[in-house]
Write a protein that binds this DNA or RNA. Structure first.
Length: 463
DNA sequence: ATAGGGTTAG
């Protein structure tokens, strides 16, 4: 055994994640009196990190720091990669700071590892900070860094800022960057911006791929331009663009919302012939289409089929069914789906609770909704605007008395009534002055002095 | 030796 064979073995085992074998070589090496080099330390650390033994990698790192062979930038990069891999990005960022102190200079890999991790955690601020750091240090900025920063801005709804970075010098555009910008434009309602960028990327010789077309079709569906969306879809089918489930879910959703349920269903059936697996997005879109046009039994059948096909039923599936069932006054069934969802360990979202509470409030079961809301709190789910929504729903339905009772209950629980809700009350009171006579008047006046003014206005309107 | 993009939901 010599240094060269040790290096070769460690490299192979490290890449393959064969930690035991890696350690075997390490021990044989020590037995043979070979002092581990920086190279070998790094190989060992990388082997550990690749096998998710990040703590072991850290121990190696610490051993280096207290030994003869000091960690270099690669050691740091591997350790930072390990931190990011196990979700400890903050720790990775701290290691970057530590590098400054230890006078080990971070390189583009250090930054890319961290930017990547911050990006996947949707930590835009850190992404931008790291990116600026890179610029300041005059490191070579890989195209990928621009992708991440622009996409990060786009995801955060800052399409204008994203476009500014894109237009800045040093950016090498690619299909992914164009697509991210187009999607962001779509989400901010800039339909013209999308098509302009689409044209521009083609003019520059970039070939739009299935993700780009997916974004276009989705955007057209969302803005109700369904025939246009179908045209692009057909174009993709005829050319070499790979059709995926996203095309189908976007179109099914759009067609369903436009009341073209038959066409939506046809596309859903077509997926099998095309060898395209139906995911939860597709199922949910079609279930929603059925629910929206009162075909609840068809929707429920799809729910069953989802289970049979092994497609995950998620919080969206349940929310669609719960609100659909309430709309048909099938209250007990709706409640059953809520319970089923909780039993399955699916965490409710504010929107799912909104569906439930709206249904319960409108069928006069405000107390029941409050009870369920109380049960959610220990689960760590407390839809912030839940009570607000309920008051809103009740006011809109003209049930101001109940809304007031609810407002009192909220104050009893130690919550405050935000100004927005007062406005809701005032508007409701204006609309139906007769409610001024009932008990709610006290509750509003007692709890929310600002409403005096509202009632005065309301009185004024009446006289 | 170490880092690598973009899309879908009530």
């Amino acid at each position: 055994m010599n240094v060269i064979s040790t290096n070769a073995l460690m490299k192979s085992f490290g890449v393959l994640g064969m930690v035991e074998e890696l350690l075997w070589v390490w021990h044989r090496m020590k037995e043979n009196g070979i002092e581990p080099s920086l190279f070998m330390y790094n190989l060992l650390m990388d082997g550990f990190v690749n096998s998710m033994f990040v703590e072991s990698a850290e121990k190696v790192f610490d051993a280096m720091e207290s030994g003869k062979v000091l960690p270099d930038v690669v050691s740091y990069n591997i350790l930072i990669k390990g931190c990011c891999k196990v979700g400890k990005t903050r720790k990775g960022l701290e290691k970057l700071k530590e590098m400054e102190v230890k006078r080990v200079f971070p390189d583009k890999i250090t930054y890319m590892t961290l930017i990547q991790s911050c990006y996947s955690e949707e930590n835009l601020d850190s992404c931008l900070r790291l990116f600026n750091d890179m610029e300041e240090k005059e490191l070579e900025i890989p195209s990928h860094a621009y992708s991440l920063v622009i996409s990060g801005l786009c995801k955060a709804g800052k399409s204008v800022e994203g476009f500014c970075v894109f237009e800045g010098k040093g950016v090498k555009p690619n299909v992914a960057i164009y697509t991210a910008l187009m999607d962001s434009y779509a989400k901010s309602g800039n339909g013209d911006g999308i098509m302009k960028l689409f044209q521009r990327m083609k003019d520059e010789g970039f070939e739009p791929d299935e993700v780009t077309y997916g974004v276009i079709v989705n955007s057209l569906c969302k803005t109700g331009k369904l025939d246009n969306a179908v045209e692009y879809f057909n174009f993709c089918k005829e050319s070499s663009v790979q059709i995926n489930a996203m095309f189908y879910s976007s179109l099914i959703d759009g067609l369903g919302k436009a009341g073209r349920v038959d066409e939506a269903e046809k596309l859903f059936d077509e997926m099998v012939d095309k060898g395209c697996t139906r995911d939860s997005y597709c199922y949910n879109a079609l279930i929603d289409s059925f629910a929206k046009c009162g075909k609840m039994d068809e929707a429920l059948m799809l729910f069953k089929r989802m289970e049979e096909e092994g497609c995950d039923q998620n919080v969206y599936t349940y929310t669609i069914l719960i609100s659909g069932l309430f709309k048909e006054h099938r209250n007990e069934e709706a409640l059953k789906f809520w319970e089923m969802m909780i039993d399955k360990g699916i965490t409710p979202t504010p929107a799912s609770f909104r569906a439930l509470s709206t249904g319960l409030c409108l069928s006069g079961k405000v107390a029941r909704a409050c009870k369920i809301l109380d049960e959610l709190a220990p689960m760590g789910v407390l839809p912030e605007a839940a009570y607000e929504d309920m008051i809103h729903v009740l006011c809109k339905a003209g049930r101001i008395e109940q809304a007031c009772k609810l407002a009192d209950g909220i104050v009893d629980r130690g919550h405050e009534i935000p100004g927005r809700v007062r406005t809701v009350f005032i508007n409701a009171l204006r609309k139906s002055a007769k409610y001024l006579k009932v008990g709610c008047r006290d509750s509003i006046i007692d709890v929310h002095p600002n409403c005096y003014e509202g009632i005065a206005v309301s009185n004024g309107l009446r006289s």
